[in-house]
């Protein structure tokens, strides 16, 4: 996927609102780019490019990390949070709770960096807001 390696190059040289992007490409059946947004590096973002979209995913926690008796409450809470949260959404990938944003493949570079910063910010704020649910 040349789009992803192009993106990796562009990101490595970019600085947006004081944030830099530390990129690490991961080879595999489908190429994945691991991005750390400086100042928000605690939760990395994984970027993949598919035929229709650029997918940015952050892994929040696994099902095993949730306080068992609070799982239903957490799920409800996440559903309620989904719409008001700017630009990102919650989802389950296997047993991983993730937060993600999807962009069109034709997105401008500025939109992608905005998405990455928003996602990293949302991830960190979400993790802090949900602390009581985590073991």
């Amino acid at each position: 996927m040349s789009l992803l390696s192009d993106l990796s190059h562009q990101l490595s040289e970019a600085e947006v609102n004081g944030h830099q992007f530390n990129c690490l490409p991961i080879q595999g059946e489908q190429e994945v780019l691991r991005v750390e947004v400086s100042g928000l590096e605690e939760i990395p973002i994984f970027v993949t490019v598919t035929s229709t979209q650029i997918l940015c995913i952050s892994y929040l926690f696994t099902q095993q990390e949730i306080v068992t008796e609070k799982e239903a409450e957490l799920n409800r809470y996440l559903l309620e949070l989904n719409v008001p949260m700017p630009l990102s959404s919650f989802a389950l990938v296997d047993e991983h709770y993730v937060i993600f944003g999807a962009l069109s493949c034709g997105s401008k570079f500025e939109s992608i960096t905005q998405e990455l910063i928003a996602l990293a910010t949302n991830s960190i704020e979400t993790l802090q807001a949900l602390e009581e649910f985590i073991k």
């Binding site: 993949t48 598919t50 892994y59 990938v93 296997d94 991983h96």
Partner: peptide, 17 residues
Amino acid sequence: KTRESVQQATQSVTQSV
């Protein structure tokens, strides 16, 4: 198709995670 490719993409991400 999107679901297929998203599934592949998330699988790759999960693997690397």
